[in-house]
């Protein structure tokens, strides 16, 4: 559905994209992660037909975004990182304006706007001015606007920025539902836990290029059925020196972090290996207060790829 080949873009000689390549299949919910200035927003702007690339090729549903932007626009819904609203318009006027901007026929427009109002839970507020809505409701309105013309591909640039936890959860559920309906979603976000929860695959980007984790993978497959590794977060009573030593000696275990009474251990294998480590620690007389194990999350893989202690 989205094909990107060796895409390049510079701003005043500064490389924003330097040969980035990617392929997103139809119906995927695909994430894009990378540090600030990695080129995520530039990439999404090129896909949204807002920016011309200097080189390489980007296609959406088979259409080249540079050569056929008029064919691409009806297929995409784009939500920028800092989206704007017409604060002095009423909610229904705002949606009607964008329905007109997407040239929906008059009869269909009315039905589509009604559906958007109901779908976003804004029916009761249709006559309210946009400026009176809360941030969460504004985000709902923006998403409703983005979906008015029923795009096949959603391009979302940091859509959860500024949202409170409840609004973020709501957004995630909304995106999952859209994806179930067959909409391909390409989303960039700094909130790794959000991506981890909803994305099937995530691409890494750094300095405008495809970045790779320690195993050389540029695209990470999330939600694997059997995780090849488990991360254990352990909290003990008192100092964790002894526990850290014991964990380090355990077969297939690697101590990732040790501070105060807490330690983080990576262990090869599945949950059985984690249970074995717990038994080993308790059997050795360590007073374990908390033991939490899970598959290697996006956060760990992000750290592996970009090296920083804090993403």
């Amino acid at each position: 559905m989205i094909e990107i080949e060796e895409l390049r873009k510079s701003y005043n000689g500064q490389r924003a994209l330097d040969g980035f390549s990617l392929r997103v299949e139809e119906g995927e919910l695909f994430g894009l992660v990378g540090p600030n200035g990695a080129g995520k927003t530039t990439l999404i702007k090129i896909l949204a037909t807002l920016l011309p690339a200097d080189g390489g090729r980007a296609r959406v549903a088979g259409y080249d975004v540079a050569a056929a932007p008029r064919a691409v626009k009806p297929l995409i819904g784009y939500l920028p990182d800092v989206p704007g609203l017409y604060q002095d318009m009423r909610v229904s006027e705002f949606l009607e304006f964008f329905a007109d901007a997407f040239r929906l026929p008059r009869l269909r427009k009315r039905a589509v706007v009604e559906r958007a109002l109901e779908g976003s839970g804004l029916s009761e507020r249709r006559a309210a001015f946009v400026e009176t809505l809360s941030l969460g409701l504004k985000q709902r309105l923006l998403l409703a606007k983005t979906l008015l013309h029923e795009p096949r591909v959603l391009l979302l640039d940091e859509p959860a920025t500024g949202l409170d936890p409840l609004a973020r959860i709501e957004l995630r559920e909304h995106l999952k539902a859209l994806n179930r309906d067959g909409v391909t979603i390409f989303i960039s976000s700094h909130i790794l836990s959000d991506l981890e929860d909803i994305c099937s695959r995530v691409a890494l980007i750094a300095n405008g290029r495809n970045a790779a984790d320690v195993k050389g993978r540029t695209v990470l497959t999330l939600q694997e059925a059997v995780p090849p590794r488990v991360i254990c977060e352990i909290e003990v009573a008192g100092e964790a020196e002894g526990a850290a030593r014991l964990a380090g000696e355990f077969a297939g275990a690697r101590l990732l972090e040790h501070a105060g009474n807490r330690l983080r251990v990576e262990i090869a294998g599945g949950p059985e290996q984690a249970a074995a480590l717990l038994r080993h620690l308790v059997g050795s007389g360590v007073a374990v207060v908390r033991f939490d194990s899970r598959g290697p999350g996006l956060e760990e893989r992000y750290r592996e790829a970009f090296g920083g202690p804090r993403p």
Binding site: T49, K73, P80, G84, Q87, F98, F102
Partner: peptide, 14 residues
């Protein structure tokens, strides 16, 4: 439109 960040929505419409 640039200041209130609505130009992108106009340019990506039809």
């Amino acid at each position: 439109e640039k200041e209130q960040r609505t130009l992108a929505a106009l340019l990506t419409s039809l």
